[in-house]
Simulated scan of single mutants.
Amino acid sequence: MTQQERQRIAAGLADGLSYAEIARRIDRPTSTISREIARNGGPSDYRPQQAHQATTHRARRGTPVPPRAAGPAAGTEGGSDSLAAAHEEIVDLAVGSGMPRMTARVHVDLILAEDGRRTAAELTRRLGVSPASVSLSVNYLVEHGYVRRERDPQRRRDIYVIDDEAHYHSIATSAQETLVVARAARAAAELHGPDSPVGQRLAKGGLFLERMVTDMMESADRWRGLLM
């Protein structure tokens, strides 16, 4: 990988792009981007100059790449290579769909918890990351309906829980967010005039989103029982 490509990776991270989008922009596999960032400080500490120098140094000395921090793919219950590969694939798929990698790692680690519960300290220790990284990731997951936050009154700490209906809750949250956009589009259509080209375009888009949300929630309600 060239130094210019590493600079574009850093720029993509600064802009909040997903690994998949960064990979598309520099015409590299997403897995290559994932490994490059993971072995050079992670998304919050990636520095293109240092990454290029470190890679050149390793190549010159013939030393192996340092192992990645323990996480869902390296520190899960069971510990087999096949399980680790499967868990890492889930993380990659989540990143490909737009979820930040650190958030995807936290999400998968919660899924792998026997009772679906972990404290912030447990997530920090298991994933080998900072408490701030865990906090940002959990806030994202809570906001999007993937997990919920519970309070332990005895030890005064938060516990993060992913239950069997997490997929339903995330779909419901996404549907509500889309519905807000749809209604805003239809309101804007009225301001532009329903007979104007812009008004018609906005009205059609808003109606399409509303119908899609209705169908999606009806389907989610119909199949919700599969999660119970």
Rank of each mutant, 00 (worst) to 15 (best):
H167T: 11
S130L: 13
A188K: 14
R105A: 02
M102K: 04
Q3Y: 09
V95S: 06
A10N: 04
L123R: 05
I33S: 01
Q53R: 03
P131L: 07
P67Y: 05
A51T: 02
E165S: 11
Q50G: 00
E88F: 14
P64M: 09
G225A: 03
I37Y: 00
S44W: 05
G12R: 02
I162F: 08
Y146E: 10
S44Q: 06
Q53P: 00
A74N: 14
M1A: 09
E143H: 06
G96V: 07
Y46E: 05
R201L: 12
V213G: 05
G199K: 02
D27G: 05
R8W: 04
D215S: 08
R58S: 03
T124S: 06
R24W: 07
A189K: 01
V95Q: 04
M99E: 06
A86L: 15
D115C: 10
I90Y: 01
L110P: 03
R222E: 14
N139H: 08
E88C: 09
Q49A: 11
L202S: 03
S44R: 08
R151H: 12
D221W: 07
L191V: 13
M217V: 15
P100Q: 00
R117G: 00
R28N: 04
Q49R: 14
S18H: 02
T30D: 10
R149S: 12
R105V: 01
L112H: 04
Y140H: 09
V198C: 03
A74M: 12
N40F: 00
G98S: 10
I171F: 11
A187R: 13
H167D: 13
A54V: 01
M216Y: 01
G193S: 09
R201F: 11
H169T: 11
P131C: 05
M212R: 08
R149C: 07
R201G: 08
R47S: 04
V65T: 15
T2D: 09
I159Q: 08
L13W: 01
V147W: 03
R222Q: 06
M1K: 00
T30I: 12
Q3N: 06
Q7D: 12
P197N: 11
S133E: 09
L209T: 01
R25E: 15
R125P: 02
E21H: 04
L17A: 05
E165H: 10
R156M: 08
R156D: 14
H167E: 14
V180G: 00
L141I: 06
V138K: 03
S97G: 09
L209S: 02
E88I: 06
I159V: 15
V106E: 07
R211D: 01
D215K: 01
V91N: 00
R155L: 14
V106T: 13
R8M: 10
A59K: 12
A84Y: 04
T119Y: 08
G71I: 02
D195A: 14
M212W: 07
L83R: 06
L226N: 01
T103I: 05
A38K: 14
A166N: 07
A182K: 12
E165D: 11
N40Q: 09
L123Y: 03
P29A: 00
R201Q: 12
A203Y: 13
T55E: 13
D221Y: 06
L207A: 06
A172H: 10
A166I: 03
T76V: 12
L13T: 03
A59W: 13
T173M: 10
H167L: 15
G225V: 01
L123N: 02
R58P: 07
E210R: 11
V95C: 11
H52T: 03
